[in-house]
Computed example of a mutant assay.
Amino acid sequence: MTTSTERRSAPRDVWRLVATREITVKLRDRGFLLSTVFTIVAIIASLAISGFVSARTETVDIAITGDSADQVVATANRLAEAADKNVTFNTHPARDEAAVRQQVNAESADVGLVPTQPGGWRLVGKSERDDDAATYLTAAAQAIAFEQNARAAGTSTEELGRGGSVAYDLLDPAAIDPGLAKVVAFVFAFLFYLGSLLFGMSIAQSVVEEKQNRIVEILASAIPLRQLLIGKVVGNTVMAFVQLVLFAGAGLIGLAATGRGDQVAQIGGAAGWFVVFFVVGFLAQASLWAVAGSLATRNEDLQSTATPLSMLIMIVLFAGIFLSGTARVVASYIPVVSIVAMPSRMAEGTAAWWEPILSLIVMAVATYGIVIVAEKIYRRSLMQTQARLSMRQALALRD
């Protein structure tokens, strides 16, 4: 039988063998490979669909009556085109206002445009306002009236509008739009949830299966338990890193393919920081998932021992999606939550250059402390196969 002295004399880098085994098992897992490919395809497809929907021109059918209605609609189309708005107004002539209302009520037209006395226009809708029609038809009617009134007064629209122009300077023209920033934050939160749960539960199940099958007793006689834990953590962290890089790359390629290449640089920087934060934070999570497995004696126990971790992952998921403003700033310095919060702030352009560095240092310090405590609990509980343990019970045990 191998003595403890012989076990302690095992190579200090034996964890590499364990890590290699963990990576090999993952690469041979068809379910893991298929889920990775499916997620990459889903990311690219969702971005392609989003780009198609945003680029698609919306058609608004306008039922019109009156001599100048065609001119109003034509002007509205020019204004929409100048504003780079993907909307086109099509006209459906009607003999009078009653016919216009009939078309709108029958839903053969989205909006009706009828003249009013002594001058002006009225829009008619069925049950809700069409914002595009209200914006551009109103602006068109005002522009036409402005030009006509200027002509009647013997002047020009340029003279009447002199001194009224307003320029708009952007202090940060490279910033992405708020809508896309929210999508990026959601993607970061979802990828955190997916990676943490997928790889974390894999570690816990691997540990508890080794305990249940008594394989851990054989491993413990040949490998120091600390080395066994390091190998499991490193192996799964490497695979999580590779998977996240693939997902981030797919997202950036999808953005570039949908005509958002000008925003790839900023989002790419935020995605890079997200991968770094995730890897550092996952070292702590992986250690805790290994502890969850070591406290259990069978797979059924994992539901109890892994509950705190599952709750933590859900909290981070919802924090990444719903937090904003000051709450998100605070969250970006809280370890684990900062994995999602800080990169999301970087994507929306609200974080200074030094903030992710400081947040990462805080995360690294917290990770170091968590790994030290987790390793102690893991070593003390791994060989206890009689009954499920709590963390307090495991800490009370002697090495």
Rank of each mutant, 00 (worst) to 15 (best):
M1L: 15
T2L: 15
D13F: 14
T20R: 12
V25Q: 13
R30E: 13
F32W: 07
L34M: 11
I40V: 12
S46R: 02
R56A: 11
R56N: 11
E58H: 15
K85P: 05
T88S: 09
T88H: 15
F89L: 02
E97Y: 02
A98M: 13
V100A: 01
V100Y: 00
R101V: 08
D130M: 08
T138L: 03
S165M: 11
L170V: 13
L171V: 14
A175G: 08
D177A: 14
A185T: 06
L198W: 06
L198H: 03
M201L: 10
Q205C: 08
V207P: 02
E210Y: 04
Q212A: 11
V216C: 02
V216A: 00
A220R: 05
L229H: 03
K232V: 05
A250S: 09
I253P: 01
G254F: 00
D262P: 03
W273H: 00
F277V: 04
A292L: 04
G293K: 00
T307R: 09
F318G: 10
G320N: 02
A327Y: 01
R328V: 14
V329Q: 10
V330L: 06
M342L: 07
P343W: 04
M346V: 11
G349P: 00
S359W: 05
A366W: 14
T367P: 01
R379S: 08
D399M: 14
